[in-house]
Computed example of a mutant assay.
Amino acid sequence: MTSRLSVRLARLLNMVPYLIANPGISAAEAAADLGVTTKQLMSDLNQLWMCGLPGYGPGDLIDLSFSEESIEVTFSAGMDRPLRLTSTEATALLVALRSIVDMPGMVDPSAAYAAIAKLEAAITGAAPAPSVLPGAEPPVEPPEVATVRAALADGRALRLVYYSASRDEVAERVVDPIRIVLVDDNSYLQAWCRQAEGVRLFRFDRIEGATELDEPAAPPRDATDRAAGLDLFQDDPSVPLARLLIRAEHAWVLDQYPMHRVRTNPDGGLEATMRFATLDWMARLLLGFGSGVTALGPPELVAAVRDRSTAALAAYAEAGLTESGI
Results as ranks from 00 to 15, higher is better:
Val148Ala: 01
Leu232Met: 11
Pro54Trp: 06
Ala146Tyr: 01
Ser99Asp: 13
Thr88Gln: 14
Arg206Lys: 06
Tyr316Met: 14
Gly135Met: 05
Gln256Lys: 01
Asp236His: 08
Gly78Ala: 12
Ser43Lys: 04
Met103Gly: 14
His250Asn: 03
Gln40Ala: 15
Leu241Trp: 05
Glu249Tyr: 08
Thr38Val: 14
Glu68Phe: 11
Cys193Ala: 01
Gly52Asn: 01
Gly52Val: 05
Glu212Cys: 14
Ala248Gln: 06
Ala315Asn: 08
Ala210Asp: 03
Leu321Gln: 12
Pro177Asp: 01
Asp184Tyr: 05
Ala27Ser: 13
Ile100Met: 15
Met42Asp: 09
Pro177Gln: 00
Ser65Tyr: 06
Ala151His: 00
Met1Asp: 02
Phe202Thr: 04
Glu172Ser: 11
Arg81Cys: 14
Ala28Lys: 08
Ala196Thr: 04
Arg179Val: 06
Asp63Trp: 01
Gly59Ser: 07
Cys193Trp: 01
Ile116Asn: 05
Asp225Gln: 06
Phe289Lys: 00
Met259Lys: 00
Thr224Pro: 06
Tyr257Leu: 08
Leu97Ala: 15
Tyr113Trp: 13
Tyr188Lys: 00
Asp225Pro: 04
Val132Asn: 09
Asp108Phe: 07
Cys51Phe: 15
Ile62Ser: 06
Met282Leu: 10
Thr147Lys: 00
Ala126Tyr: 05
Ser87Gln: 15
Arg203Pro: 12
Gly78Asn: 09
Ala151Pro: 02
Tyr316Trp: 09
Leu85Phe: 14
Ala223Gln: 03
Glu208His: 13
Leu279Trp: 11
Ile71Leu: 11
Leu133Lys: 07
